[in-house]
């Protein structure tokens, strides 16, 4: 589903160059549920942005759904995001002026889907996340857990091949977090690939695989690199 080889992403400011991803390689197969873990600043969000075609990268090759997406126009990247990828964000990212129905509708409209099909999909997705009775509620009228469920409904209705989630439970209490994880589990069991960044070991445990990042690289948890180990040792 997702194949990255030797990806490099450098942020340049006037004073410093930050190598957010360095020689980054990762394969995720179709149907996997992968948890991405790592300390703050290790490049998790940067990886997600590159994987989701939200950001460009400098070196390496990225194949998404068996298609090389390394050199696409802005327009082509928009279409792939719209058709193949679903995003779940830490801060939900609902449009505050739109109700549940219109929020879930957004990616469907960008696909140019007919109104009847959109309506069916939106209502079905709202039912799956248990918000059928709140189709015309605004985000401000819902709790954080409910808002994240709207965001999941937005992904469900669009039915993407790959879901990218950046700390989806980061702003939620543990009860609400469990509800969200149950939903993601359910979606993954239906066959959708999920890559989820999380800080929570509990959430990571729900995934089929854990990937650990450090300094913009994937590290082997069993054998941490010398620097990582050294740092740990010296901290003791």
């Amino acid at each position: 589903m997702l194949r990255m080889k030797n990806i490099r992403k450098i942020y340049r400011t006037e004073l410093v160059e930050t190598h957010a991803l360095e020689d980054f390689s990762l394969n995720v197969d179709a149907g996997e549920f992968v948890a991405i873990m790592g300390p703050s600043g290790s490049g998790k969000t940067t990886f997600l942005n590159v994987a989701g075609l939200l950001d460009v990268f400098e070196g390496g090759v990225y194949e998404l759904d068996d298609k090389d997406v390394s050199k696409l126009s802005d327009r082509e990247m928009s279409h792939i995001r719209n058709q193949k990828i679903g995003f779940i964000f830490q801060s939900f990212n609902l449009i505050p002026d739109l109700d549940l129905f219109d929020n879930v509708d957004i990616p469907l409209r960008y696909r140019g889907m007919p109104a009847g099909e959109r309506k069916t999909r939106i209502e079905k997705a709202a039912e799956v996340v248990g918000l059928s009775s709140r189709l015309h509620h605004l985000p401000s009228q819902m709790s954080g857990g409910q808002q994240q469920r709207v965001a999941i409904a937005r992904v469900l209705a669009a039915d993407p091949k790959l879901i990218l989630a950046d700390e989806p439970t980061g702003n939620l209490d543990s009860l609400m977090a469990r509800e969200i994880m149950d939903l993601l589990d359910e979606i993954n069991r239906r066959g959708t690939t999920i890559v989820m960044v999380t800080h929570s070991p509990e959430c990571a445990a729900r995934a089929s695989r854990e990937i650990h990042l450090f300094d913009g690289r994937v590290i082997d948890v069993e054998r941490p690199p010398a620097l990582f180990g050294g740092a740990l040792k010296s901290a003791k």
Binding site: R75, S78, H79, N82, P96, I106, P107, Y110
Partner: peptide
């Protein structure tokens, strides 16, 4: 700003 970024992530082209 945030809303526009989100719309772009959800598939809005610059034209949209």
């Amino acid at each position: 700003r945030k809303q526009i970024g989100t719309r772009r992530a959800l598939g809005a082209t610059k034209g949209a």
